[in-house]
Amino acid sequence: MPGLEDLYKEIILDHYRNPRNRGELPPPACKTEGFNPLCGDEIVVYAHIVDDQIVDIKMGGQGCSISQSSASMMSQAVKGKTIDEVKQLTNDFKAMMSIPGKGAASSSEADSAEAIAAAKAAASAGDAGNIAATTAGAAEKPDLSMGDLSALKGVVKFPVRIKCAVLSWNTLLEAIEQAEAS
C-alpha cells in the first residue's frame, strides 16, 4: 500500500494552504466551471485569452487538497503560455496521471497501452520529465517544465484521486474551447 507521504507532499499542502491566483476576472475573460459529480469538488476557471495566449488566469471553487493544489499549480504553470503550450502541458500532466493524451500534440503512440504503462513506470521512477517524451513524442514539443506540478505524480498511486488532480485541467480546456469558439 502506498504511503500518504507519496500523496501529501509539503508543496501540495502549501498550494492548498495558500492557493495562487485565487479570485475572479471580469469579462471578456472566459469563465468555466468543472464539477466532480462523485465527490462534489468544484473548480471555476477565469481565463483571459488574447491572441492565443493566456494573459491572465484566476481560480475559484472548493474541494480537497489534491483538486485545489492542482488548480493552484496549474494557474502558475499556464499563465503567459500560448494555447498550444497549454495543451501540450495538459497532455504532459495527464500522461503523468496515466491518462492517454489527445488534442494538438497527441500521437497514436500516446493512446497505446504501452504509453500508459511507460507513463506509470516513469511516474513511479520519479522522473516526470521523461513522461512527456515517452507519451507525446519528442519532436515539435515546446520545452515545458512541470515545475511544482511534478509533486502531484504520487497521485497516480491513488487512482481514485486522479480525477481530483485533473479537474482543473479539464475545466481550463473548456475555457480554451470557449475562447476558440468565440
Binding site: L4, Y8, C64, S65, I66
Partner: peptide, 12 residues
C-alpha cells in the same frame, strides 16, 4: 480537513 482527504487518511 476536507472530507475527501479525511477518508484517504482513514483508509490507511
Amino acid at each position: 480537513v476536507h472530507p475527501h482527504d479525511l477518508s484517504q487518511v482513514l483508509d490507511q
